[in-house]
Design a protein around this nucleic acid. Structure first.
Lengths: 343, 343
DNA sequence: CGCTACTGTCGAACCGGTTCGCACAGAGGA
DNA sequence: TCCTCTGTGCGAACCGGTTCGACAGTAGCG
């Protein structure tokens, strides 16, 4: 494998000159520059990343900590990951991916050994164990997900309160007065998945303010449990005319459950989900939903992280906490509630 | 940040002694070893990955090249990625993830700059542009997916021929004589996604051998197109009693389409898919299917790659091409064909 | 008692880049 | 003619590890 020493020798210059010719950090005559470039292409020279990292203390790598927790919906994570990965590449960074069950160890490994210039944490819990480690690291970090304490990190998340209100308001406007909400599994909440109750509480509050009845429940994360949950919920509330689904697995299971019962949306039941458009198209989910914009959040996190890494934003400049406003995408699964006695 | 020099100073020994005390590669007195270990923990010392890579020419990182191509079903990729990532970690390796649209550039970047000790390529096409680059790299590579030319790389894939036969045989045994097959989009085939026609050809051959009629078509990769495809297919072949689905998006869309038509599986139509069990549970797909074992393939690829990296298998020892036998998972969506005239 | 062998430690070189300080040549001004 | 300045290039040091060869000191042995 060719080194910069080889390049220098072929070009007939010193190693430092070769380095400067390639980096452009000092004036180099056109002649020498050409000879160096010729040597590079004839040798197929590529700088050794480890050596460069050692010399510059920059690795051009961003750590991505994705947690695939039991009871959490894995495929949604992929969209965050792709947002992060693509954006990183646009800025010249590669991605070191950690999917360890123990995120704290992975984070420590990456930062302490200086494999990365910065870190993106996905799926951040309210009291996330990774945060203290991140704060004590010397690299900056950006989060997707809202923790209780945001000091020292840049935070990006969907505005789940607004999402909850949006879902309720939409059905209220159409005339619904009794509505169901299926959230993620309770385990997720216990583990600190605050987004679940952020949406749920805001939805309950909005329903109360509008004089609606809203029954909130937790749903499981996969079959066959989630199907059972949905059937039980529909049985328990035969008068409900609307269904809000903040649970991807439940949304995926819903077409089959509705089919079993001979129900159709929106004729018999108005349905609003909360997932991304990409997700809806890939999985053929025909429900109106609140767009969760995972790629956008990943993108924002990386952009801010890169600003910190490259010193455009100093480590002492205030950290941002930014919420993305959700948007309702109408796929025609909502309408006026069926008139009483029709069913 | 503490370096090994700091450790040595605190422990009152030379840098080399500190290094040997930690690596265990030379005999070190118990006393010195303890002093070094104390210094390490009091300083919170962690070796600098770049420096170590430079000195040892080993990075303990595996490159993972995942391609998210248009018209290909993204979430399936996640399961391969997790299989690779988890297995790599078990062996002490981290994952450098590339999702670049241009896989060749990403591969070259990783290997030439020596960021990785080896590479796993996912979603390998028949004439994959990444292969020549991989062969000329100095790191070993393992593939998931079968290319036309397997020289110089270890290859792992599902036995798609066997899968095709399995699907056909299953319906044949139940008495079906006219059956439909929905494959991935034709674009995927044109791009070299050989697994599509490997399954399809084997299925056609098996059907011919058993005197069945099998109509094979391509399906789209997302809504609304894939729904249209399915409806058109059912319209065109009203006498078909079985449906084979080698297309995840079509499988996801199928419950809704069946619902529209008032059809149920297996009463009106027997359905066999081809996707992983994990996938079925997460997306509530109620169809009997041929298990595609993505995590197993990822795992096998990494294990073999690590053997090559660590020299347990020399670079000149023959490369393996290993097929995983598919298994049919019965979810009750198949049965005897409806009697003529029943519908 | 002297020689060898072994144990434990150290110094120095090396991996492959980057960067600082300095030297030198030629141009331009006094 | 001499001096200064500018444009170029070189040498050496450094980043933080690993590893080879040398070398004391001690133990074992005849």
């Amino acid at each position: 494998m060719a080194t910069i020493g080889d390049v220098a020798r072929i070009a007939g210059v010193s190693r430092s000159t070769a380095s400067y010719a390639l980096s452009g950090k000092r004036a180099i005559s056109a002649d020498v520059r050409r000879r160096v470039e010729d040597a590079v292409s004839s040798l197929g020279y590529t700088p050794n990343a480890g050596a460069r990292a050692l010399a510059t203390t920059r690795t051009m790598v961003i750590g991505l900590l994705a947690q695939f927790l039991p009871d959490e919906f894995a495929p949604a994570m992929l969209q965050y990951m792709l947002g992060v990965s693509d954006t990183a590449r646009e800025h010249g960074y590669d991605i070191l991916l950690a999917t360890d069950a123990d995120g704290t160890r992975a984070l420590r490994r990456m930062t302490d050994s200086r494999m990365v210039d910065g870190v993106v944490l996905l799926n951040v819990a309210e009291h996330d164990e990774r945060l203290p480690i991140l704060r004590s690291a010397s690299q900056p970090g950006a989060l997707v997900g809202l923790p209780a304490d945001c000091t020292g990190v840049d935070v990006f998340d969907l505005d789940f309160e607004e999402a909850g209100r949006l879902m309720v308001d939409h059905l209220h406007r159409l005339g619904h007065r009794e509505v169901l909400l299926v959230s993620q599994p309770e385990h997720v909440v216990e583990r600190g998945g605050a987004y679940v109750w952020r949406l749920q509480n805001a939805a309950l509050e909005a329903a109360r303010a509008r004089g609606m009845r809203l029954y909130a429940t937790y749903g499981s994360s996969s079959q066959p449990d989630v199907g059972r949950d949905l059937r039980g919920l529909l049985d328990a509330h035969p008068d409900a005319t609307g269904l809000l689904v903040n649970n991807e697995a439940a949304a995926a299971a819903l077409p089959t459950v509705l089919h079993e019962r001979g129900l159709s949306a929106p004729q018999d039941l108005s349905v609003v989900g909360r997932y991304s458009d990409e997700f809806a198209r890939t999985f053929s989910l025909p429900f109106t939903s609140v767009e969760s914009a995972p790629d956008r959040l990943g993108r924002m996190a990386v952009r801010q992280l890169v600003r910190r890494i490259e010193g455009e934003v100093g480590p002492d400049e205030p950290h941002v906490v930014r919420f993305v406003s959700p948007e309702l995408v109408d796929r025609g699964s909502t309408g006026a509630p069926p008139r009483r006695g029709d069913a």
